[in-house]
Simulated scan of single mutants.
Amino acid sequence: MIFASDNWAGASQPVIDAMIRHNTGSAPAYGTDPLTERVTQRFRDIFEHDVSVLFTATGTGANALAMAGCARPAGLVMTSGTAHIHCDEWGATEFYTHGMKLVPVATTKGRISAGDLAREIGKYPEGSRFGVPVALSLTQASECGTVYTPAEVAALTGAAKTRGMVCHMDGARFANALVHLGCTPAEMTWKAGIDILSFGATKNGCWCAEAMVVFNPDRVRDLVTLRARAGHLFSKSRFVAAQFDGYFEGGHWLDLAGHANAMARRLSEGLAAAGHKLAYPVQANEVFPLLDLATIARLRAAGAAFYEWPEAGSSEDRVAVRLVTSFATPEADVDRFVEIAGG
Rank of each mutant, 00 (worst) to 15 (best):
R322V: 03
F43Y: 13
K277L: 14
I16E: 10
L233P: 05
A118I: 00
F3I: 02
T189H: 14
C208Y: 13
W253C: 10
I121L: 07
M19Y: 12
R42Q: 14
K123Y: 08
D333W: 07
V213E: 09
A186C: 04
V334P: 06
D6G: 01
I85A: 12
P330F: 06
R336T: 13
W309L: 00
P104V: 02
Q243C: 09
A175P: 02
P133D: 03
F47T: 08
P28N: 06
A175W: 12
P150N: 06
C87I: 00
L290M: 15
T149V: 06
G145Y: 01
G81S: 00
V240C: 09
R219N: 06
A301C: 14
L323T: 00
V134P: 02
L256G: 04
D292Q: 01
T56Y: 09
S137L: 15
C167Q: 07
L181V: 06
I121M: 05
E152W: 01
G158D: 11
Q41T: 13
N285E: 04
A297V: 02
D333H: 14
A151C: 02
T295I: 15
S5C: 04
G246Y: 01
T97R: 06
L271H: 08
R265H: 10
A74I: 00
G31T: 12
V334Y: 03
C87R: 11
A18V: 06
T82L: 03
F244M: 10
P133S: 07
A135F: 03
E48W: 03
A155V: 07
F43M: 08
G171P: 05
E210T: 12
G313V: 02
S113I: 08
P217V: 14
F199V: 05
R173A: 13
G115A: 11
C70L: 05
V282I: 09
A302M: 09
G258V: 03
V334W: 00
A155L: 09
F327D: 03
E143A: 02
P217W: 10
Y280Q: 01
S315H: 00
F239H: 12
T149K: 07
E316C: 05
K123F: 10
E316V: 06
G69C: 13
L293F: 15
G158L: 10
A106R: 13
T189C: 15
E152I: 03
L156Q: 06
F239C: 04
A71H: 05
N204Y: 05
